[in-house]
Simulated scan of single mutants.
Amino acid sequence: MDFSAFRFEKANVNQAQAISDLINLTYRGNAGWTTEAAIIHGDRTNRQEIEAAMQNSSTHFFVVNLPSMLASCIYVAPEKEYAYIGFFSVHPDLQGQGLGKYMLEQAETFASTVMNIHQFVMFVISQRTELIGFYQRRGYHCTGRVEAYPAYLGVPKIAGLTIEYLEKKAMRC
C-alpha cells in the first residue's frame, strides 16, 4: 500500500462518533483479523469515551481519512515516563496491507519527537496471541503484568480473559 497520499493527522471532536464506530467495527465486527467478536460481546467504546479522551489537552488522537471512510485511528497519552498507546484500529477492509504498521510508527515517532517520550505501553487481551505477535514484531515485549479483563471493555463470552501489558523502548539518537 502506498502511504504517500495518506495524511496522519490529529482528529477533531466532530470525528468522535466515526472513531467509536471504527473501533467497534475493528474489535467487535465480524471481519478482519483483529476482531474479538468470538470472545467478547458488546461495544469496545462509545462516542462519550472518545470525546472525553479528546478533551484532555495532553493527549492526542490521530486518524487517517480516506474519501470513503475513516481508515485508521490511534491514541497517544503521556503517562509519567511513557506514552500510552490505545484505541488503535484499522478498518477491516484495509487490514493486512501495512496501514497498522504505518500508524504505529507514526504514533511512536510523534511521541518521541514532539512529546520527548521514548517508552511506549499498551495492553492487549492475553488470549489474542496473533495481536501480541503483531506488536512483538514491532519491538514490543510482554512486561509480565497481567490483569483481569476489565468489564468496561465488553462482556467476555469465555471465562478467564485477561489483559497483558506490552512495552517498547525507542532508540534515542
Score class of each variant (00 low, 15 high):
Glu36Leu: 13
Pro92Cys: 05
Val64Asn: 07
Phe87Tyr: 12
Arg44Pro: 04
Asn14Gln: 13
Arg137Met: 09
Ser68Ile: 00
Pro92Val: 05
Tyr140Met: 13
Val90Gln: 05
Thr34Tyr: 12
Ile85Ser: 01
Glu167His: 10
Arg145Leu: 14
Leu70Cys: 10
Ser112Lys: 15
Leu70Gln: 11
Asn56Gly: 02
Asn65Tyr: 00
Val63Gln: 10
Ala31Glu: 15
Arg128Tyr: 00
Ala107Asn: 09
Tyr152Ala: 13
Tyr149Trp: 09
Thr143Met: 06
Thr162Tyr: 04
Gln127Arg: 06
Ala16Asn: 12
Glu49Thr: 08
Trp33Glu: 14
His41Ala: 15
Asn12Arg: 12
Gly133Asn: 14
Val76Gly: 02
Asp43Trp: 02
Gln106Trp: 02
Pro150Ser: 09
Glu167Thr: 08
Gln119Glu: 15
Phe123Asp: 15
Lys101Pro: 00
Phe88Glu: 05
Tyr27Val: 04
Pro67Asn: 10
Val114Met: 11
Leu161Lys: 04
Gly32Glu: 14
Glu9Cys: 02
Ala83Phe: 02
Lys157Cys: 08
Gly98Lys: 08
Thr162Asn: 15
Tyr135Thr: 04
Gln15Tyr: 06
Val155Lys: 15
Gly144Ala: 07
Tyr140Thr: 08
Phe3Asn: 11
Phe120Gly: 00
Phe62Gly: 03
Tyr102Val: 03
Thr129Trp: 01
Ala52Lys: 15
Asn24Cys: 12
Gln106Asp: 07
Ile85Arg: 00
Val76Arg: 01
Ser68Val: 03
Gly133Phe: 05
Phe120Glu: 00
Ile132Asn: 01
Phe61Leu: 15
Ala111Lys: 10
Arg28Tyr: 05
Glu79Phe: 05
Ala148Glu: 15
Pro156Ser: 09
Gln136Glu: 15
His141Ser: 13
Lys168Met: 13
Ser72Asn: 06
Lys157Pro: 06
Asn116Lys: 14
Thr162Phe: 06
Ile85Asp: 01
Met103Tyr: 04
His141Ala: 10
Glu105Arg: 13
Tyr82Asn: 11
Ser58Val: 07
Phe6Gln: 09
Ile40Leu: 10
Gly160Glu: 13
Tyr27Met: 08
Pro156Ala: 09
Ser68Asn: 13
Gly98Ala: 08
Thr26Lys: 04
Cys173Ile: 07
Glu105Ala: 11
Cys142Ile: 06
Gln48Tyr: 04
Gln127Leu: 03
Thr35Arg: 07
Gly98His: 07
Tyr140Lys: 12
Val114His: 13
Thr143Pro: 07
Met1Leu: 09
Gly32Phe: 09
Trp33Thr: 10
Arg172Phe: 04
Ala111Leu: 12
Val146Asp: 11
Ala11Gly: 07
Trp33Ser: 14
Ala148Met: 13
Gln17Cys: 05
Gln48Ala: 14
Thr26Arg: 02
Phe62Val: 03
Asn30Arg: 04
Val124Leu: 09
Gly144Val: 01
Thr45Ile: 05
His118Phe: 13
Asn56Lys: 14
Pro156Gly: 09
Ser58Lys: 12
Tyr135Leu: 12
Phe123Cys: 12
Thr162Leu: 10
Ala170Ser: 14
Glu167Phe: 06
Ala53Ile: 01
His91Lys: 07
Ile40Glu: 02
Tyr149Glu: 07
Glu51Tyr: 04
Ile50Tyr: 01
Gly96Arg: 10
Asn46Trp: 01
Gly154Asn: 08
Glu164Asp: 07
Leu131Gly: 02
Ile40Ala: 06
Leu70Tyr: 07
Thr35Ala: 06
Leu131Ser: 11
Leu104His: 03
